[in-house]
Design a protein around this nucleic acid. Structure first.
Lengths: 179, 179
DNA sequence: AGCATGCGTTCTGTTAACAGAACGGGAGGC
DNA sequence: GCCTCCCGTTCTGTTAACAGAACGCATGCT
């Protein structure tokens, strides 16, 4: 039986020893709504879920598919499998942290939006990475930063490698395009 | 401006260099829907958010209020607040990735177990960090690696700073003391 | 100039999520 | 027995999220 939103909600409510009617009272959400949510007879709006989890003193994530990184579709690439660990806004910018596994084959990457910077830190193995024509060879523990708005390339050397990839996105104005 | 769902969605989309129309095409969500979501003119259903984050290759959490759910309680020193993002075993070793916020005050750290290495990458601000007597000054985007089994020191320069911290433990049973 | 293409916003009709009322059922009290 | 509470489900009318079309505004191309 696949873990559905309704089952998670019911389990959470039961765990709190809270009746459906009482949850309706405390959360301000209608009884019928909760009943049909628990039986997967309808979808939910975000504000509804938020009202429910708040009343149950649980984080919103308690109702969501155990997404976290693993379920989040790994970024594509023939020889790169990247999983987003976290992202957070810093003022008007965005920072993302990936864990990535590199296969020995060469992986070329198209340029990203203007102003993006990437930083790679090798956790296992050795890699050659960087902007096209300016790649660097990194051993375990080494880091390299390069512009992400130019074509760039990943390549593990002598076996698979693991890296941590930091993406640094700039302000949302620049729209320069590339040759 | 207090970080709304619409702003997070727009930032995420911009970060991917994806136009609103293209996101509509890829996700199957109507253009009008996305436009009004980004301008906070309506709330969203969960399935809609899922379709959008999937098309953007991001976890659902990227759109939700920053409740930093899965991670353990922050480890803290006087001027360092670190949150474990992920850890994974590599053979007989262990790698941990932290996101850490540094206050301007100096934070000295006792040596860790022998063989531990740390790598710091600055995400915002500037820091001085490294083994005692051999610290380095890092600007935004810079990285520095140093031995964790010697006394070392963190210090944000000229305001609070954010860093990503990689811990490389030689043995798997090493404890997560920080920093 | 004119026409095309792509962008983001606003408009329009449909559908479904919602609150609350009505319903049926089990557990106690007297 | 009957009455009363509370439970969870189902029904009913309202409201708003939605898809898609229509719109206005840029930029580019001949």
């Amino acid at each position: 039986m696949p873990e559905t939103l309704g089952s998670r909600l019911r389990r959470l409510r039961d765990a709190r020893g809270c009746s459906l009617s009482e949850l309706a009272r405390r959360s301000g959400v209608g009884k019928g709504t909760i009943s049909e949510l628990e039986n997967d007879r309808r979808g939910a709006r975000l504000d509804t879920l938020f009202a429910l989890t708040t009343a149950l003193d649980a984080p919103l994530g308690a109702l969501l598919p155990d997404e976290s990184p693993p379920a989040a579709a790994p970024a594509r690439g023939d020889s790169v499998a990247a999983v987003l660990l976290t992202s957070w806004p810093l003022g008007d910018r965005l920072v993302e942290v990936y864990r990535a596994a590199l296969a020995p084959a060469v992986q070329d990457s198209a340029p990203h939006a203007a102003g993006v910077e990437e930083t790679v830190t090798v956790v296992r193995g050795a890699v050659r990475v960087g902007a096209a024509g300016r790649t660097r060879e990194l051993a375990e523990g080494d880091s390299h930063r390069y512009p992400g708005d130019l074509p760039h390339r990943f390549q593990a050397l002598g076996g698979p490698a693991d890296v941590v990839l930091l993406m640094h996105y700039p302000r949302r104005d620049a729209t320069r395009d590339l040759p």
